[in-house]
Design a protein around this nucleic acid. Structure first.
Length: 720
DNA sequence: TACTATTTAATTTTT
DNA sequence: TTAAATAGTA
């Protein structure tokens, strides 16, 4: 057996990982250390050298993109298409299992997946139904609560209110939400994972079957697994399955989404005899950039510990620019981008990263003015557009009349005279009789509604029935085409003025061709339509098109994870913005921000600029800020400071040490997040600043007295 | 029912 | 500031 193609291109550590003996393996793969390569080559090694059947390998990732890339690369390496090899996202694989074993999972055969937007709407509707004030019970918070519990594997029955009435309410809402999903045959993202876990947990035979089948489990981005995903993996691994997990504890940036870095720390305990391989050699960045990254991340306490290094050159210093304000910052970045482009480089090889999406605005304005093409990552995706979701809702109703979520969405879209009043009555009836909206509408239409409303309701019910009948024999694109026309959606959007309606219609037509291009799995135990609908929920499509154009890349640091660019700008590096205000006081939150910074720095291959603004217009008010503490964590020797050419003279701010009283009429020591004491209101935190000199005001959130705006020169605040 | 005024709040995002 | 959601009006 010639193993050259599999091992040739690997370094020692990578080779050690790829050829690890058949036992649990934990690969700590630093940024740019060839993580995917190791995973791909490991799969090839198992199949080609160890003689493991492709059937016996399960590879799990977080994104569809990663899954597709892995499959492609494995096939390229082995030079054969590997069917039977299960590669997919956690959600995709869970979905596959649930479709296959819907009975055991306690689901209807035609269950449908709802995305987070559907979920939120469903919760809002639920609150309205139960007549709960949604200003008191914020739908988003409830959604967060429900998903958080599911991520931990907890059902309402597992939860205890601990005597806390608000918690009791949350649990009750969770239960009510579950009931609605159950009735409508709806499954949300977290539910996919939870159900798949319960499926195995409660069906020993089934579990045994899959345990026998999958001898090797390959896991990507292991640091991002949540409790239920990890539990699912451990169930599958059982006593004999061999997990091979790859991750980087320093790049864990999704704690707020349920990801638990701790899994990477406890892996060795859960799987005794684990071989640990560290990949620290970096093939992406200059030594200077790596030194900077290492220095920053060293400030985190809980780490496995790892130091990136390269055989490459030191490269350029990291350039730090202290801008006067956000406009100045943007001008500076654009100037450098210009130079870059003028030197004959590709625009697409430059990326401007920021902490939060709102920061893209100023940059975009500047880029437009400068006539530099750019692309912002992370917009609305195809299957998330309203018009597409409307069309999908019709299709879902055709497949399942009990889908309340879809029913509600299109009941009066286009308007057909079913106003808020009629809709309320339908909801009330459905609630009183614990039946789907569909049945409620039918009952009311032929019974209680007066002429006009009854007509409208009948019209809607008939429309759906007719659509179902008329599309019965059609193929998928035919069905979609018929539905978007016959439902009146096309006409509805045609009336929308401006270009908007036109785009919407184009998108709807695009949906038809998406249906045409969709290849249903012949082995699937469901209709191509249902399969397409699931696919739409599970794979929302590309964010923004034009990826092939040569554009400067604008994105958040989160979305930059996994990418690399020769030229990178980290913008808005200010305390309060990054680290973000909301994470700053929580040590765990701060460490995660620091990891995010580490991710940001390690995106850069050759040139890295770090910029911050001393003054920034935030939420319509000017505020002052200090450079991000992360900037100070980069040793001076790697930094070259660039000062603005023209400085507007303004008071300098002294470093804050101890309790410095604020001098009248000056903003010395003021920064967002600063703790202050007021003689009447007590202790608080500065949220915002405005104006200068005698007019300077600050907004302070007092622990007891709430949030107040104070004029600095009168307030006599003490810094804490 | 559609349009307009007002209020409110303001990370990060994939499935 | 501004986007989105809600309330009010024609």
């Amino acid at each position: 057996m010639d193993v050259t193609p599999i091992l040739d291109s690997l370094n020692d550590a990578q080779r050690q990982a790829v050829t690890a003996v058949a036992g649990p393996t934990l690969v700590i793969a630093g940024a740019g250390s060839g993580k995917t390569r190791v995973l791909v080559h490991r799969a090839a090694w198992l199949i080609d050298v160890e003689g493991v059947s492709p059937q016996g390998v399960l590879a799990v990732t977080f994104t569809n993109k990663a899954a597709a890339e892995m499959r492609g690369r494995i096939e390229a390496l082995l030079n054969i298409p590997v069917r039977n090899l299960w590669i997919g996202t956690f959600h995709g694989l869970a979905h596959r299992l649930l479709r296959r074993h819907w009975r055991e999972a306690g689901l209807p055969q035609n269950f449908q997946i709802i995305d987070s937007d559907d979920q939120l709407r469903l919760i809002k509707r639920l609150l309205k139904n139960l007549e709960i004030d949604d200003s008191c019970w914020v739908p988003r918070d409830i959604q967060y609560f429900i998903n958080g519990q599911k991520d931990e594997g907890l059902r309402p029955k597992h939860l205890n209110d601990e005597g806390d009435p608000s918690r009791r309410q949350m649990i009750a809402l969770y239960q009510a939400y579950e009931d609605v999903c159950e009735r409508g045959g709806l499954v949300d993202f977290a539910e996919l994972l939870l159900r798949a876990h319960e499926l195995w947990r409660d069906n020993a035979d089934l579990l045994a079957h899959y345990q026998r089948r999958f001898s090797h489990l390959l896991v990507d981005e292991f640091q991002d697994t949540n409790a239920i995903q990890y539990a699912w993996l451990r169930l599958l691994a059982g006593k004999t399955g061999i997990p091979f997990v790859v991750g980087d504890d320093d790049q864990s940036i999704y704690r707020w989404r349920g990801a638990r870095v701790e899994h990477i720390y406890r892996f060795q305990k859960d799987f005794p005899g684990t071989a640990v391989v560290k990949l620290e050699q970096n093939y992406r960045s200059t030594a200077t950039i790596l030194h900077a990254a290492n220095s920053v991340i060293e400030n985190n306490s809980s780490r496995l510990g790892k130091k990136l290094w390269t055989e490459g050159a030191d490269g350029e210093p990291i350039r730090v620019y202290a801008a006067y304000n956000e406009r100045d910052e943007s001008d500076f970045i654009i100037g450098r981008l210009r130079d870059w482009i003028d030197q004959g480089n590709l625009r697409a090889e430059a990326a401007v990263l920021y902490r939060s999406n709102a920061q893209s605005r100023v940059l975009e304005e500047g880029l437009i003015n400068a006539g530099i093409p750019y692309r912002v990552y992370g917009g609305l995706r195809f299957f998330e557009r309203t018009e597409i979701k409307d069309a999908l809702a019709y299709l879902r109703l055709i497949s399942n009349r009990n889908d309340d979520s879809s029913f509600e969405r299109v009941l009066n879209k286009p308007t057909r005279g079913i106003g808020a009043r009629s809709a309320d009555m339908i909801r009330a009836y459905a609630r009183a009789n614990a039946c789907p909206l569909w049945r409620a509408a039918g009952a009311l239409a032929s019974d209680e509604f007066n002429g006009r409303a009854a007509n409208a309701a009948h019209e809607f019910l008939n429309l759906i029935e007719t659509l179902a009948r008329d599309t019965d024999g059609l193929d998928l694109p035919g069905k979609i085409d018929h539905v978007i026309h016959a439902s009146g959606l096309i006409d509805f959007f045609r009336k929308e003025k401006g270009e908007k309606g036109e785009t919407r219609i184009e998108n709807l037509l695009e949906l038809v061709s998406a249906g045409g291009g969709f290849e249903p799995d012949p082995a699937a135990e469901m209709s191509p339509l249902d399969e397409f609908l699931s696919h739409a929920a599970l794979e929302a499509g590309e964010g923004q098109a034009d990826a092939w154009d040569d554009c400067v890349q604008l994105m958040t640091m989160h979305s930059a994870k996994g990418l690399e660019f020769p030229l990178v700008f980290l913008s808005g590096m200010e305390d309060g913005l990054f680290p973000h205000q909301r994470s700053i006081s929580d040590p765990k939150g701060l460490e995660e921000e620091r990891r995010l910074c580490y991710v940001g720095i390690t995106r850069a291959m050759q040139t890295l600029y770090v910029t911050y603004a001393e003054q920034r217009r935030l939420h319509g008010m000017d505020s002052f800020s200090q450079p991000s503490r992360f900037v100070a964590e980069i040793p001076d020797q790697y930094i070259e400071e660039i000062r603005p050419k023209v400085r507007v003279s303004r008071p300098t701010r002294a470093p804050i040490v101890g309790r410095t009283p604020i001098r009248q009429g000056s903003e010395v020591g003021i920064r967002l997040g600063q703790r202050v004491r007021h003689k009447k209101f007590g202790d608080g935190i500065i949220l915002n600043c405005e104006g200068q000199g005698a007019h300077a005001r600050v907004q302070v959130n007092f622990e007891d007295a709430g949030t107040k705006w104070l004029v600095l020169s009168y307030a006599n605040l003490d810094l804490m």
